[in-house]
């Protein structure tokens, strides 16, 4: 896969909307890509799943997961004055809400602006608005709006997909569409090869509200090994953060399989693939937490792409990290003969 193809795929994945519980459009887009590598790819309970590789019963079975959902808002009411009240889907930073441009997905998609109070009404209050105080302005009156929008409809933040200096990319929903892209990149590398293991690709729903799609997806796939490919905090690397451009962050944690963590490091070393460590002290806040305790227990690990400004409409990643993550996954699968 060329850089241009990868970026085009990432762009396509990021512009489709899919907040937790309403992932259909994003899932269908991911499915269309996965079908290129997994002839049996399908959507099950919202999760996108497909298998490839060694079909021998005794071959180790590796689950590669990235979540397909993104954070957003959900309509909770329409006020008498025609403004929209919302609840949050996933962890959002309310400090950045004022005057954000959003799309409201009703019977048709309409534009909205998150209302802000002018100084004379905010009374110099320095507190950020609570979620129940947040109002979206669509311009419509209550009666007009009720014909278009209904309680429970999804609201997404507008971001812009743009290439920045030095291979960095900003887009909404890079968490975790860049993980989806890295798995697809890995499968692309392997498509004409015979590999020793069986692979299930899972693009799971509802990670942002509690890793729910991963729980049922892993049960359904029943793997020996499960890798959660997600994003993690970018920084200078000194405080558990990852340096952008230095490759995937391989997770080490009491809740993860130390063997898999080490195997991933070994694989990266042997193949000269850049990587960095991400050491955590308990659960990981990723789908790996569900995988490890699935059924009779699964050997789980995290492989994370460093990302800046998580859960804002302007998340930033380095495209090299997506490629190197894909490369690490592909090489790990090439060498995965036992579990």
């Amino acid at each position: 896969m060329t850089d241009v193809t990868l970026k085009k795929m990432l762009y396509t994945l990021c512009v489709v909307k899919g907040i937790s519980g309403d992932e259909t459009k994003a899932s269908e887009m991911a499915l269309s890509f996965l079908k290129n590598y997994c002839s049996n790819a399908h959507i099950s309970h919202g999760n996108v799943m497909g298998t490839m590789g060694n079909s021998n019963e005794n071959a180790p079975h590796v689950l590669l997961d990235a979540h397909i959902d993104q954070v957003g808002l959900i309509v909770t009411s329409i006020t008498d004055d025609g403004f929209v009240t919302v609840g949050n889907i996933g962890g959002l930073d309310r400090r950045i809400f004022p005057d954000q441009h959003v799309k409201l997905h009703g019977t048709k998609t309409i534009d909205g602006i998150i209302s802000t109070l002018p100084p004379h009404l905010s009374n110099g209050e320095e507190q950020v608005q609570r979620i129940e105080q947040v109002r979206i302005d669509t311009g419509y009156s209550a009666d007009e709006l009720k014909k278009i929008l209904h309680i429970g409809d999804s609201v997404t933040f507008c971001g812009v997909y743009a290439e920045m200096m030095g291979g960095k990319i900003t887009a909404p929903a890079l968490d975790d569409r860049c993980g989806v892209a890295s798995i697809l990149y890995a499968l692309d590398l392997l498509q004409d090869e015979e590999i020793p293991c069986k692979v299930t690709a899972l693009f799971s729903t509802q990670e942002e509200v509690g890793e729910r799609g991963a729980r049922i997806g892993c049960f359904s796939a029943n793997p020996d090994i499960a890798l959660a490919v997600d994003v993690s905090f970018a920084g200078d690397g000194s405080d558990g953060t990852g340096i952008m451009g230095k490759g995937a962050m391989i997770g080490f944690s009491p809740s993860l399989s130390r063997k898999i963590s080490r195997d991933l490091v070994k694989c990266a070393d042997e193949n000269n693939i850049p990587y960095q460590y991400e050491v955590m002290n308990g659960t990981t806040g990723t789908n790996a937490d569900q995988f490890s305790t699935c059924r009779e227990g699964v050997r789980a690990c995290t492989v994370s792409i460093p990302l800046d400004y998580m859960h804002t409409p302007v998340e930033v990643i380095d495209i090299e990290d997506v490629k190197n993550t894909g490369l690490l996954l592909a090489n790990y699968l090439r060498g995965c003969r036992e579990c």
Binding site: G91, L92, D93, R95, I96, Q100, G159, V160, A162, M164, M165, T170, F233, G285, D308, Y309, M310, H311, T312, P313, V314, V316
Partner: peptide
């Protein structure tokens, strides 16, 4: 904060924020 801005001579830049987490 938390949105894209136009930077002449560059194109798009972002004014981010510390992740809510």
């Amino acid at each position: 904060i938390g949105r894209a801005v136009q930077v002449p001579n560059v194109g798009i830049g972002v004014v981010g924020s510390v992740p809510v987490h």
